[in-house]
Amino acid sequence: MNRRAAIKMLMGGAVALSGILPLSAIANFMGNLKADDAISKITGGKHTASADLKLKTPKLAENGSQVPVTVDATALTGVKSVFLIVHENLKPVAMRVDFESADVAAFASFRVKMGKPTKVTAIAHTANGFVTANGSTKVTKGGC
């Protein structure tokens, strides 16, 4: 891709971003708050645990600044978005992933920072409500 096309794309994308995502709505639960408050803000207090939502975190992380996390909701149907909550972090909501197309597998893998040993929760927003899965990670050296 040449430079001109790249710039065009970038600008188009930025417009699309600001148009669809209301920033204030995100900030609502992306800030400094308790993990449980964040979960109830996202789910509206109604969520069920399910084995179909798979959350993969290491049991023991040596380096808290690079903890690999995988959220796999492919066994669920009608997944609109997934959230990852790291309970002991100052900002517990680490990531929100919105699936905008049927062409996307409800799957995401990334790395997060963890300050200390913590419970980790994944939330999937499906057509039939909110589904959660829990895990926990021990951190020997915090990375926040």
């Binding site: 971003l17 669809i20 995502l21 995100i26 992306m30 600044s65 690079q66 903890v67 690999p68 995988t70 790291v86 972090n89 100052l90 900002k91 909501v93 680490a94 990531m95 929100r96 992933v97 919105d98 699936f99 905008e100 197309s101 049927a102 062409d103 996307v104 597998a105 799957f107 995401a108 893998s109 990334f110 790395r111 997060v112 920072k113 990375g143 926040c144």
Partner: peptide, 21 residues
């Protein structure tokens, strides 16, 4: 296809892995 909203608690030099049709 996908829209992600990372927080500052995502690791430095973010790594990302997704799957598409």
């Amino acid at each position: 296809m996908l829209r992600l909203s990372p927080n500052s608690t995502v690791s430095a030099n973010p790594y990302l892995f997704v799957k598409l049709n």
